[in-house]
Computed example of a mutant assay.
Amino acid sequence: MSHAVIIQDAVKRYGDFQALGGVNLSIRPGEFFTLLGPSGCGKTTLLRMIAGFNTVDGGEIRFDDTVINNVSAHKRDIGMVFQNYAIFPHLTVAENVAYGLKAKKVPKDEIDRRVTEALELVQIENLAARKPNELSGGQQQRVALARAFVIEPALLLMDEPLSNLDAKLRVQMRSIIKKLQRRLGITTIYVTHDQEEALAISDRIAVMKSGDIMQVGTPEQIYKKPENPFVAGFIGVSNFINCEIAAGQDGKAEIKLAPEYSVSAPLRREYTGSATLSARPEQLFFHENEGLAGKITMSVFLGDFVEYEIELHNGQTVQLNEYTKDVNEVRPDGQEVHIGFDADKVSLYVPETGEVLSC
Results as ranks from 00 to 15, higher is better:
residue 53 F to D: 05
residue 103 A to S: 09
residue 95 E to L: 07
residue 281 P to Y: 04
residue 133 N to P: 06
residue 21 G to R: 15
residue 199 L to M: 06
residue 218 T to Y: 04
residue 325 K to T: 06
residue 264 S to T: 15
residue 223 Y to W: 02
residue 120 E to K: 15
residue 103 A to K: 10
residue 240 F to D: 04
residue 113 R to F: 08
residue 309 E to G: 13
residue 108 K to N: 11
residue 344 D to L: 15
residue 350 V to N: 04
residue 337 V to D: 12
residue 254 E to M: 14
residue 224 K to Y: 06
residue 283 Q to G: 05
residue 192 T to M: 03
residue 166 D to R: 05
residue 187 T to N: 11
residue 210 S to P: 00
residue 123 Q to S: 14
residue 333 D to H: 12
residue 14 Y to I: 07
residue 42 G to I: 12
residue 269 R to L: 07
residue 95 E to K: 09
residue 313 H to W: 03
residue 235 I to Q: 00
residue 258 A to T: 12
residue 328 N to H: 12
residue 131 K to V: 01
residue 261 Y to E: 08
residue 206 A to Q: 01
residue 273 G to M: 11
residue 309 E to R: 14
residue 62 R to G: 03
residue 74 H to E: 15
residue 14 Y to H: 07
residue 159 D to S: 04
residue 32 F to Y: 08
residue 4 A to F: 06
residue 314 N to V: 03
residue 65 D to G: 08
residue 137 G to N: 04
residue 130 R to M: 09
residue 175 S to Y: 04
residue 44 T to C: 06
residue 181 Q to Y: 13
residue 241 I to Y: 04
residue 220 E to Y: 02
residue 337 V to T: 09
residue 169 L to F: 04
residue 357 L to G: 01
residue 286 F to G: 10
residue 271 Y to M: 07
residue 89 P to L: 10
residue 222 I to Q: 00
residue 210 S to Y: 06
residue 221 Q to M: 04
residue 241 I to T: 11
residue 330 V to P: 05
residue 70 N to M: 07
residue 90 H to V: 14
residue 205 I to H: 10
residue 76 R to A: 05
residue 130 R to A: 13
residue 231 V to R: 01
residue 147 R to G: 10
residue 148 A to Q: 13
residue 271 Y to C: 04
residue 162 L to P: 09
residue 87 I to G: 03
residue 131 K to H: 14
residue 303 G to E: 10
residue 17 F to N: 12
residue 275 A to M: 07
residue 64 D to G: 11
residue 305 F to P: 03
residue 227 E to C: 02
residue 123 Q to P: 05
residue 206 A to S: 01
residue 27 I to D: 05
residue 286 F to C: 10
residue 284 L to I: 11
residue 284 L to K: 09
residue 232 A to W: 00
residue 76 R to P: 00
residue 125 E to W: 09
residue 115 V to T: 04
residue 354 G to H: 01
residue 1 M to L: 09
residue 312 L to W: 12
residue 152 E to V: 06
residue 34 T to H: 02
residue 100 G to H: 04
residue 273 G to E: 09
residue 293 A to S: 15
residue 238 S to A: 14
residue 317 T to H: 10
residue 84 N to G: 03
residue 221 Q to W: 01
residue 265 A to K: 11
residue 294 G to I: 13
residue 110 E to I: 05
residue 84 N to S: 15
residue 70 N to F: 07
residue 189 I to L: 10
residue 64 D to L: 11
residue 153 P to V: 06
residue 248 G to M: 14
residue 78 I to Y: 02
residue 138 G to Q: 04
residue 15 G to Q: 06
residue 199 L to K: 00
residue 129 A to M: 12
